[in-house]
Amino acid sequence: TSILHFTFWVFITLQDRNLVACEESAKSLFNISFNLLQNITKLSLKNNKITLEDHDKEILGCFINLTELHLNENNITVLNNNSFYNLKNLITLDISNNCISTVHKAAFAGLNQLSVLNLSYNMIAQLDSDTFTSLESLTVLNLQHNFLKYFHIKSSFKLIKIVLAGNPWICSCDLLDLQIWLTASNVTLENESNTTCTLPNMEQISIKMAAIQPANCKIENTPLKNTVTSTPAVNLRSSALTLPLVGKSWTFLAGVVGFVLGTTLLILTAVKCPAWYHYLISYRHRRLEENDSEMFEQEFSADMSPSTSISGTSSEEPIVVFKKVHACGDEEDGFIEDKYIDIYVNEER
């Protein structure tokens, strides 16, 4: 009886202090169980196989008193909008060591009391600048060991500590607003010595100390830059990469226009100047001049003259005379005889 009274007293004490914990770790769970107490304040689901689908989100919405949630070491790949919408009392959220590659803009909507957010050791390559704007109480943000190359952040964003180490940061103009925010605000960049750039000759330089000149980044605000880099498939985030791309596109366009104009000019020339076209096709033909024709007639007549040939022959040589032999005989004129016509002509006579 004393043991039962002691257990009951402990339960009542936990209820009064809002420390109702539930441990569901390392149980190979694919989904969050619906049989859990809905008044729990701390839920640990780490080291399972949870993917946080719609079914899991509906069950999480029932734990309205939850203040601490651990979903690390699971199989979560996407954080959809309103994934934790009903957890208005949540203070600590740990989603580290998953396979998260996509974080939607309103994934953390409704977490007005959230203070600590751990997204480390995932596969996040891009984050929208408004992803954390609704988290008014956020003080600690852990983004280390992801695939982030840049991170646009607003100056009004308030934090006490941020962890950004282990990301392939590119210290270009796209990182300027983050650098200015790290310098101007009172935030602590944890593990700053390992939060370095990945560009050549800058591997040992902290992103907070990298030499990014604001004067060289004014081109980032031009419409041309926005047009080129607005397509996610291109994903060129630095002005150094954008400007050569624009130049090559204009060169290619000029080459295409020149080729089209040249081809059109050749076609028009061939159509409008047929004499020139035929001259190119039959360039070996030339017109026979008048003096050439006269010379040809004289040579021909001289060769055909009988006097030269007869006088040049001796009297002893026999003279061969060719006689034309008609195939139809001497009296035939080469026409086919039609007896019907002859009879008709004789009758008329």
Score class of each variant (00 low, 15 high):
3 I>Q: 07
4 L>K: 13
6 F>D: 13
8 F>C: 10
14 L>V: 05
16 D>E: 13
19 L>R: 04
19 L>I: 09
21 A>G: 07
21 A>Q: 10
23 E>T: 11
24 E>Q: 13
31 N>G: 08
36 L>T: 10
36 L>S: 09
37 L>Y: 07
37 L>N: 12
52 L>D: 02
57 K>L: 09
71 L>W: 01
92 T>L: 15
95 I>D: 00
96 S>T: 04
104 H>N: 04
104 H>M: 00
107 A>F: 00
114 L>E: 00
117 L>I: 00
123 M>I: 09
125 A>H: 06
126 Q>A: 05
127 L>M: 03
129 S>K: 13
131 T>C: 01
132 F>W: 00
137 S>V: 03
138 L>Q: 00
159 L>S: 01
161 K>S: 09
167 N>S: 00
168 P>E: 00
176 L>A: 00
183 T>M: 15
185 S>Q: 06
186 N>V: 02
186 N>G: 11
194 N>H: 12
198 T>Y: 12
202 M>Q: 11
205 I>M: 08
207 I>S: 05
207 I>K: 02
211 A>E: 09
213 Q>G: 11
217 C>M: 06
217 C>L: 05
217 C>W: 15
218 K>C: 04
223 P>Y: 07
231 T>I: 12
243 L>M: 09
247 G>F: 07
253 L>I: 11
254 A>P: 04
258 G>N: 10
260 V>W: 06
280 L>S: 10
282 S>Q: 15
288 L>N: 13
290 E>G: 09
297 E>P: 09
298 Q>A: 14
301 S>I: 11
302 A>C: 08
307 S>Y: 11
308 T>I: 08
309 S>Q: 12
310 I>L: 13
330 D>Y: 11
335 F>D: 03
337 E>P: 06
339 K>T: 12
341 I>S: 08
341 I>Y: 09
346 N>F: 13
349 R>D: 15
